[in-house]
Design a protein around this nucleic acid. Structure first.
Lengths: 249, 249
DNA sequence: CAAACTAGGATGCTATAGCAACATGGTCAA
DNA sequence: TTGACCATGTTGCTATAGCATCCTAGTTTG
């Protein structure tokens, strides 16, 4: 539901943007069940705003694929089947490979230095986490920060690609898996944060390949990297036991 | 005002959809120059409708990347540089390869039969074109129909992938190059329609791979196919440096 | 008892009005 | 002459109202 009070910023963001983010979060968080009917006025009431910005948010989400139209007058939450999520993982792998390939060609030295700096931050965080864990203190918050740093790294790599469309495509793909992945990755890393170290090593190699302009190697590393992470997630005991994908044919 | 001057279709399509398509076409056709300022009310006047549906169209185009915001109150046509188009071609190649890979796994026999049927149509069209050309009669219209058929084939392959997100990604990629490609491909095929025959052969191989469920081969064929087409377009003798379409700014 | 029809409520779509913030051109001061 | 400041028109954003259409439930008929 995302606390709807934001007194710090009176109007820095449009209501439509807030509605878009709220509904998107509600869907990915499962608060709005798949196939649940959605109405402009209902959401407007729920978000305490007029139907106009809600309508805009609905159309954007529809373009994202999170909302589907079953009839001329009926809009429901899209049902992203488990098989689709499985497929999306493969799409994301390929997109990240593409991004790495482009980044190897277009990255500037400053950007590459930034990547290394981000990895240094991650390195420090890992040390802190290990220390705290050795002392038996909670590490959840730091692991979350680490995940944020990893995300920043990935975003920075995407920025290196210098192709806005490519970034947008990746973003649209991630919309479907973001929430679920986040929680499951958190569990995974908490259970065995050696995982984080492995990822980290791959990232260092990636930056090295980018710096050398070796697009083929960069692509391979990125794809292997993401694939490994997604495989881990797939094998992880999901909170909601999803049945194996049953595709047609 | 706006007396219903369109009695043929009272409300078969929403005004917002029409605005979206119109503005998109205007941008890709070059009628709206890059960095040209856009206003809701201006477009509304031009399209003879209220600003509300225009606003929706603008937001969708913004999400597509065809329209960019330079300030909180300023919206301009995005400037898609030539290098970006070059990059987009590579993105499209990869996406089509992905689609073929997915299609090899998910295509149903009925869908595959449909693909063959579409290729049969293309085959007939090619025969007609050769006949007409041998007789010295114009073939532009038939070549256009052939291109439509090819597009239908590609759309059908995308449908076989059974992944709506993937289709959407490809669609969004093609938005930037659709108009230009269409005209240049038409010139190319007209200059040497043996090109069409080559493509045709590749498509048959692709369907064969799909039917065999050979995802790796399907991906290779699709990528090679698209890459070849795009390379041809790149080498096309179009007026170097200037857009082939008349810049009626 | 079931299927089809119909009336009323509900819903999305469009138009219009108003508001707050921004862009622009002109004016004034240094 | 040039720079900043300011007033006014412009523009995007939101709210509200109305309409055509669709969905749903109740009724009727075979």
């Amino acid at each position: 539901m995302t606390a709807d009070e934001d007194p710090r910023e009176p109007q820095l963001e449009t209501l439509a943007g807030r509605a878009y983010r709220s509904v998107q979060e509600a869907i990915t968080a499962g608060e709005l069940a798949p196939n649940e009917k959605i109405t402009e006025r209902g959401l407007a009431e729920r978000l305490s705003m007029s139907p106009t910005p809600v309508r805009e948010a609905i159309r954007r989400l529809e373009q994202d694929g999170l909302i589907k139209r079953t009839g001329p007058r009926t809009v429901v939450v899209a049902d992203i089947g488990a098989s689709a999520v499985e497929d999306l993982a493969e799409v994301e792998i390929a997109l990240r490979g593409l991004i790495a390939r482009f980044a190897a060609r277009h990255a500037t030295p400053a950007q590459l230095d930034g990547l290394d700096a981000t990895l240094d931050e991650a390195d420090d965080l890992l040390i802190v986490i290990k220390q705290r864990e050795a002392e038996g203190r909670p590490v959840v918050k730091h692991v979350n920060t680490l995940l944020d740093t990893m995300q920043r790294f990935n975003d920075a790599v995407a920025a290196c690609a210098g192709n806005a469309v490519l970034v947008r495509l990746l973003e649209q793909t991630r919309v479907f898996t973001r929430a679920e992945r986040r929680t499951r990755m958190l569990e995974r890393v908490l259970a065995n944060h050696q995982y984080g170290l492995d990822r980290y090593a791959g990232h260092r190699d990636l930056v090295r390949a980018l710096r050398a302009g070796d697009s083929a190697t960069a692509e391979q590393i990125a794809m292997h990297d993401v694939r490994g992470g997604l495989d881990d997630l797939r094998r992880a005991p999901g909170p909601a036991g999803v049945e194996p994908t049953t595709t047609n044919r």
